[in-house]
């Protein structure tokens, strides 16, 4: 059992994060919201990755959540909180049902299928103009909380804490051992009595639920959804890069990666307005080349060396 002292640092961090709007202005809060969005997506991606399954469907479920929330809000006048929760529920339901088909696949076949799923969602929304607004999308009459910076910050912070909580739960529960066993050797895991399909289905549904929820919150905060923006490949690529940079198979890794890349990208943009993307890309390539285990992996390695 962990000593109570071990909980002090994470709890202090959570408390400090919640207090930030008291000290920070609207601009850092806006940047933080963006960082939290990608952080939650990176964590959710990692939750499934712990089973060895690499999903490229983040943007698909994010977009699905975005559209669920905005359609409910615009077409049915549903309250923002209900719309956001419904976004999570619908993404989870779709993932659960599709899971029966796609979770039979492994490695590249699974990855490519999840990528294709996102494209299929996008094509349906794109072509169902009368309901989804088609390529031009839908616009909310008003964003949630009237666009108040601190409220929007706390909303995205709450969603991030939910994602962190789910990830920690995966790490601390029996799920962790099941997923690690599946990743290391599926046949051995099955022989040990682990229900492979059930565990994968839970991980796939839970990670999609978070992605849908983040999409729903994002659309209610920015007020519009278009297929090109809601299903933007960046919602898949950036969380991947963040998790790889921070370190995979952990909750801390994606948090560190998203924080670093989010802050670095904003800093570089202000320092090198014409050419920051080049430097940003170069940093990602170098870190992944020379730190394949990510920053958290490196920290863990150093710590275990020190402990003998």
């Amino acid at each position: 059992m962990k000593k109570p002292a071990n909980y002090i640092f994470p709890l202090a961090l959570i408390f400090a994060g919640g207090l930030l709007p008291v000290f920070l202005g609207a601009y850092p809060q806006a940047v933080a919201r963006s960082v939290f969005t990608f952080m939650a997506l990176a964590i959710s991606w990692d939750m499934l990755l712990r089973s060895g399954q690499i999903s490229f469907g983040i943007a698909g479920f994010f977009g699905l959540g975005s559209y669920t929330a905005i359609i409910l809000s615009v077409r049915a006048g549903v309250a923002p909180v209900v719309a956001m929760l419904s976004a999570a529920a619908f993404a989870a339901l779709v993932a659960f049902l599709l899971g029966f088909l796609v979770l039979r696949l492994r490695s590249t076949y699974f990855s490519i299928t999840t990528l294709a799923l996102g494209e299929i969602f996008k094509v349906i929304i794109h072509n169902w103009s009368s309901f989804t607004g088609g390529p031009e999308g839908l616009v909310l009459p008003q964003v949630v909380f009237g666009g108040k910076s601190s409220s929007l910050y706390w909303l995205s912070y709450a969603i991030l804490l939910f994602a962190v909580g789910a990830s920690v739960l995966f790490e601390k529960s029996k799920m962790h051992f099941s997923l690690t066993a599946i990743r290391n050797n599926e046949i051995a895991a099955r022989t040990s009595g682990i229900n492979i399909f059930a565990n994968l289905l839970i991980a796939f549904t839970a990670s999609s639920l978070i992605q849908g929820l983040v999409g729903g919150v994002h659309v209610m905060s920015y007020g519009f959804a278009m297929p090109d923006t809601a299903f933007d490949a960046n919602y898949t690529l950036l969380p991947l890069a963040m998790a790889l940079l921070g370190g995979i198979h952990s909750t801390w890794g994606p948090i560190i990666g998203a924080l670093l890349l989010g802050v670095i990208s904003e800093y570089l943009k202000l320092m090198i307005p014409y050419g920051h993307l080049l430097v940003y890309g170069l940093i990602i390539i170098l870190v992944i080349l020379f730190m394949p285990r990510g920053i958290y992996g490196l920290i863990k390695k150093e710590r275990s060396k020190r402990n003998g």
């Binding site: 920015y222 923006t229 202000l270």
Partner: peptide, 15 residues
């Protein structure tokens, strides 16, 4: 400020 052609970055730019 570079908005990078992205909505969230555009909002941060205005802020």
């Amino acid at each position: 400020v570079d908005d990078e052609g992205k909505g969230d970055k555009g909002v941060a730019a205005i802020e």
